Simulated scan of single mutants.
Amino acid sequence: MATSDKSNSRSRGEGRRPNRRSNSTAAQSDVLRASMQDAIRGSHINAGQDSTAALLQQLAQTQPLDPVQDGTATGTANIPLARPEPVVQAEPTVVQPEPAVQAEPQEEGPAQAQRSLQASFVDNRLNSNTWQSWGFRLVPDVKERLAKRLEADKRSSGNRRLAQGHYVNAAMLTVCPKSVKGQLALIRGWLTERDAYTEQGRPSNYLVSKPVWDTSSTLDMELTAASKRGQVVYLFSAVLERFLDMLDEGGTLPPPGRRNS
């Protein structure tokens, strides 16, 4: 019986040895398999990292496209963009102040001419001590026209005290330009109407108010300095003729206090 137990023990013992070897082999296989899987995973990870790094490096080396220089916008292929026009800054405009121009007296209508004539008559009657004589040279036809107008107005108005000086005084106050430039322009226009030909002027003395006397006494010198000698006779003649034209347009002179409107 004892012998039989020992035999059984050996056979069990002998049966266990092969089991230890198979278990060890299996464990080694598992370790090897796990190592291989780790290696495979590591290689995939390394490969992925390498490819990602290469892609990032390639993107970093690629210059972004300028939508203006390239002619296309990002995300919009083959659509040309208009180049912006260069901004041109306008130069500031400096406005130079215009020099002040002295206003020239405008030729008034017939009613104004009659009022000016009546005012000269009244001023002479009330302030005769301030009126002075001055020599005005007039071309012959203008001088004759003045004499005829005076006689006609004396008849129509009944005012026998009217004098040629009243007409000359009113004409200088109403028609004569204040500036030498305007005076020369009036002379040029008047001579042009007469084809630049007139007879020689004749001197005549007329009583005029102080403002007219002050102006007339310096005209010859001023016109000579600005142009040439002999111009003042044309100025006086032109001024008086323009004034007579205005009076003729308004008809004959009415009695005092009944001026034509």
Rank of each mutant, 00 (worst) to 15 (best):
A47N: 14
V101K: 03
T130I: 08
A26N: 10
S43G: 12
L240N: 01
D220R: 15
K154L: 04
E241R: 05
E108P: 02
V68C: 04
I40R: 10
F243M: 00
Q102L: 14
R161A: 07
T215D: 03
L138G: 06
Q89A: 10
S157C: 10
G42V: 01
V31I: 15
A171K: 08
V101F: 01
A225T: 14
L117T: 04
L81Q: 07
A152L: 15
N159R: 13
Q58H: 13
R161I: 00
R145W: 13
T215K: 03
R20V: 08
S157W: 04
L146N: 12
Q164V: 10
S7M: 12
A90R: 02
R16P: 00
I79L: 10
V68N: 11
R33L: 06
S120Y: 02
A147V: 14
D245W: 00
E151S: 13
D141F: 13
S35Y: 04
S120W: 01
V233D: 03
Q112M: 08
V180P: 03
I40K: 09
L150D: 10
V87S: 00
P110Y: 05
A47M: 12
P84L: 02
V180H: 02
A34L: 14
A39H: 08
Q57K: 13
D38V: 13
L59A: 14
T174I: 02
P105M: 01
L117D: 04
T62A: 15
E108R: 09
N205D: 11
Q102F: 08
M172D: 07
Q231H: 09
G182H: 00
P80F: 03
S237Y: 01
P99M: 03
